[in-house]
Simulated assay, not measured.
Amino acid sequence: MIAFFALLAGFFYPLITNTSFDSVVSGVLVLFVGLAGGILLYKSATSEKKRMIFLGGGFGLIAISLYYIFQFTGRI
């Protein structure tokens, strides 16, 4: 999973341009935060007792991931 996210975050771009891997590491972290939010949303659909906790946490993590994406692209 880490290798897939690293490739998705643009692992080869710093190798080609001789720049640092900071953007790749932050991209992988953003993807993991979004994945954790998606997992919590799935758990909210399958759980009966803690549905609202999982739902709120899942949407919260996805919102944090979206905020990081906007922050890294310079739109905030």
Rank of each mutant, 00 (worst) to 15 (best):
1 M>V: 05
1 M>Q: 05
2 I>V: 10
2 I>D: 03
3 A>I: 15
3 A>E: 01
4 F>E: 02
4 F>S: 03
6 A>R: 09
6 A>Y: 09
7 L>K: 10
8 L>P: 01
9 A>F: 08
9 A>Y: 02
11 F>C: 05
11 F>L: 14
11 F>V: 07
12 F>C: 12
12 F>I: 09
12 F>H: 13
12 F>P: 01
13 Y>F: 08
14 P>I: 12
14 P>L: 08
15 L>S: 06
15 L>C: 09
15 L>R: 15
15 L>V: 10
15 L>P: 07
17 T>Y: 15
17 T>L: 03
17 T>Q: 14
17 T>N: 12
17 T>P: 05
18 N>D: 14
19 T>S: 09
19 T>H: 05
19 T>Q: 12
20 S>W: 06
20 S>Q: 06
22 D>Y: 07
22 D>E: 13
22 D>Q: 11
23 S>P: 01
24 V>G: 02
24 V>Q: 01
24 V>K: 05
24 V>H: 08
24 V>Y: 03
25 V>F: 13
25 V>H: 06
25 V>K: 04
25 V>G: 03
27 G>S: 04
27 G>Y: 01
27 G>E: 05
27 G>R: 03
29 L>E: 01
30 V>R: 07
30 V>Y: 03
31 L>R: 10
31 L>F: 08
32 F>W: 09
32 F>G: 01
33 V>M: 14
34 G>A: 11
35 L>V: 12
35 L>E: 10
35 L>R: 04
35 L>N: 07
35 L>D: 07
36 A>T: 15
39 I>C: 06
39 I>L: 15
40 L>R: 02
41 L>H: 03
41 L>G: 04
41 L>E: 14
43 K>A: 10
43 K>N: 09
44 S>M: 07
44 S>D: 04
45 A>Q: 13
46 T>I: 13
46 T>M: 01
46 T>V: 08
46 T>Q: 11
47 S>C: 09
47 S>E: 13
49 K>F: 11
49 K>M: 03
50 K>I: 08
50 K>E: 13
51 R>V: 14
51 R>T: 15
52 M>C: 10
52 M>S: 14
52 M>F: 13
53 I>V: 14
53 I>A: 12
55 L>D: 11
55 L>Q: 15
55 L>S: 15
56 G>W: 13
56 G>F: 14
56 G>C: 09
57 G>F: 10
57 G>P: 11
57 G>T: 09
58 G>K: 09
58 G>N: 13
60 G>M: 10
60 G>C: 10
62 I>M: 12
62 I>H: 06
63 A>G: 04
63 A>R: 02
63 A>T: 07
64 I>G: 02
64 I>E: 10
64 I>D: 13
65 S>C: 07
66 L>C: 08
66 L>R: 04
66 L>G: 05
67 Y>N: 11
67 Y>K: 14
68 Y>R: 05
68 Y>V: 07
68 Y>H: 03
69 I>A: 05
70 F>Y: 06
70 F>G: 07
71 Q>P: 00
72 F>L: 09
73 T>S: 05
73 T>C: 00
74 G>L: 00
74 G>K: 00
74 G>R: 00
75 R>C: 01
75 R>K: 14
76 I>L: 15
